[in-house]
């Protein structure tokens, strides 16, 4: 419901903005070009220059261990993505500001320049790729099914999943997998809430990222009574930028350099995600 509302608003605003600005992103195939071309379109400007000009790279993210999170009693964001983002900021010569965003609004946040990048273990799906320009994949991931540990042995196959009540983050890669399998679900606004649903017994199962499942469930974690069973797919993480932004190329180049220098591996090892890093 909420997702539809947002989509509707977004669509309405896009239509209006396109109408107002003269189809700046459409190829405008058959009609003749408008006599006057807009003096400056965002795509024509350098996004790198824009970010360097204001001196801050604003990274939109959510609280998502082990990629972005805060240690007990600390106000500083840490995690694999957070640390890499700071390294990228240093590479550009700018400060990095982290903003916790409402994940549903990530495309609007980017488009309106409220943030400059979505960098938060974002799965590269057809949907995210259509909403923003994404970097090359940097990390492997999978969608896994989480259930109560004491019932885990009943749900080891995809076939056994039908009939379970699922909770899943709205619009996430997990939701996409359930759609493919034609399994109905209750949409939550974060993966963490989907987990909470299962822990509280409100839903039988949820689908979350493997990286998150590794960090947050099982013995010695916040949810010791949960475990993950079926792996539904394998997928890749990427960083999202504005459409047409030259930050994409800048990022890919930076990453290659950092990978070759061993920086990526060092930081990945710190947060236990070194197995998942995409080899360059």
């Amino acid at each position: 419901m909420m997702k539809k509302l947002f989509a509707l608003l977004l669509a309405a605003m896009m239509v209006l903005s396109l109408a107002a600005c003269g189809a700046k992103e459409e190829p405008a195939p058959q009609e003749e070009q408008p006599a006057e071309t807009p003096a400056e379109t965002p795509a024509a400007e350098s996004d790198v220059a824009y970010v360097q000009d204001k001196g801050t790279l604003v990274v939109g993210m959510t609280d998502f261990a082990p990629m972005d999170y805060k240690l007990e009693g600390s106000d500083e964001w840490v995690g694999f993505d957070a640390d890499m983002a700071r390294t990228f900021g240093a590479h550009l010569g700018v400060d990095v500001e982290f903003v916790e965003i409402n994940w549903d609004n990530k495309a609007m946040e980017l488009e309106t320049k409220a943030i400059d990048a979505v960098w938060n273990g974002m799965t590269l799906t057809e949907e995210t790729k259509s909403l923003m320009d994404c970097s090359d994949p940097y990390c492997m991931n999978a969608q896994v099914v989480v259930v109560a540990a004491d019932k885990a042995d009943q749900y080891q196959t995809v076939e056994s999943l039908s009939g379970l009540n699922f909770a899943v983050e709205n619009g996430s890669a997990g939701a996409e997998q359930l759609d493919i399998l034609n399994i109905p679900y209750t949409a939550m606004d974060t993966q963490a809430k989907a987990l909470m649903e299962v822990a509280a017994g409100a839903s039988d199962a949820c689908v979350i990222d493997l990286l998150m499942a590794g960090a947050m469930i099982g013995e010695g974690t916040s949810y010791p009574d949960l475990t993950y069973t079926v792996q539904l797919n394998s997928e890749e993480y990427g960083v999202g930028f504005r459409k047409g932004s030259d930050l994409v190329a800048s990022f890919n180049e930076f990453w290659k350099g950092a990978y070759d220098a061993g920086t990526v591996d060092d930081i990945a090892t710190t947060y236990g995600v070194d197995e998942a890093i995409v080899k360059k």
């Binding site: 605003m13 903005s17 107002a20």
Partner: peptide, 8 residues
């Protein structure tokens, strides 16, 4: 979001 979406 309106100012950014509609008028850049």
């Amino acid at each position: 979001y309106g100012p950014g979406l509609l008028f850049d």
